[in-house]
């Protein structure tokens, strides 16, 4: 569970670290904490998975990765854990989840998000996934986003 200080750390860093030589010292000053305490807390949050990673967070769109396709797969339940692990390990897959089917409209239980510079590039990458998955996939599809209807970031109040 996160405590109040963790939540203040989130609120203070969700827009990024101070871009100075000693970012954690500046952050600690902003929050009225010791630098050593800030470093220890961030390490703990990283170890627990509350922080996925620390570093450059690319803007896919600005870097030219303007196509995104949600590839979806119908994989036998007995092998989905194994197949998902392999698909997630591909370097062009940004998210990979198992989710429930909704029959008959939705037979797919494995979701792998693929980013590319063009839709054709996304299709090529999905074809690579299909080769890797082989006969474990009963069917698959790619859902391209055609319009962003709403987009807000993570917003945590202190």
């Amino acid at each position: 569970m996160l405590d109040a200080i963790d939540r203040r750390l989130i609120a203070a860093t969700q827009g990024g670290l101070p871009l100075v030589r000693e970012p954690y010292r500046v952050l600690a000053e902003q929050l009225g904490l010791d630098e050593a305490d800030v470093l220890a807390r961030l390490q703990g949050l990283l170890d627990r998975g509350a922080i996925r990673r620390i570093g450059a967070i690319p803007n896919h769109y600005a870097l030219g990765f303007t196509a995104n396709g949600m590839s979806v797969w119908d994989i036998a339940d007995e092998v989905v854990a194994d197949v998902g692990a392999k698909v997630g390990a591909l370097d062009f897959v940004t998210h990979c989840y198992e989710r429930p089917r909704h029959l008959p409209i939705w037979p797919y239980n494995l979701f792998a998000m693929v980013h590319g510079k063009t839709r054709d590039e996304v299709r090529d990458k999905v074809a690579e996934i299909a080769l890797l998955v082989g006969s474990a996939a009963r069917s698959h599809d790619i859902l391209f986003s055609t319009r962003i209807l709403k987009k807000t970031g993570l917003r945590i109040a202190a």
Binding site: L2, D6, R7, I10, T13, Q14, G15, G16, L17, L19, L42, L45, L46, R48, G49, A50, I51, R52, R53, I54, G55, A56, I57, P58, N59, A62, L63, L154, I156
Partner: peptide, 22 residues
């Protein structure tokens, strides 16, 4: 890093929080 965030090539530089956990 400053140039990349100013130009917008990076959304930001720092921790990527796991929305579900936090």
């Amino acid at each position: 890093v400053q140039d990349l965030t100013t130009s917008g090539a990076l959304s930001r530089f720092g921790p990527l929080w796991n929305a579900e956990q936090v």
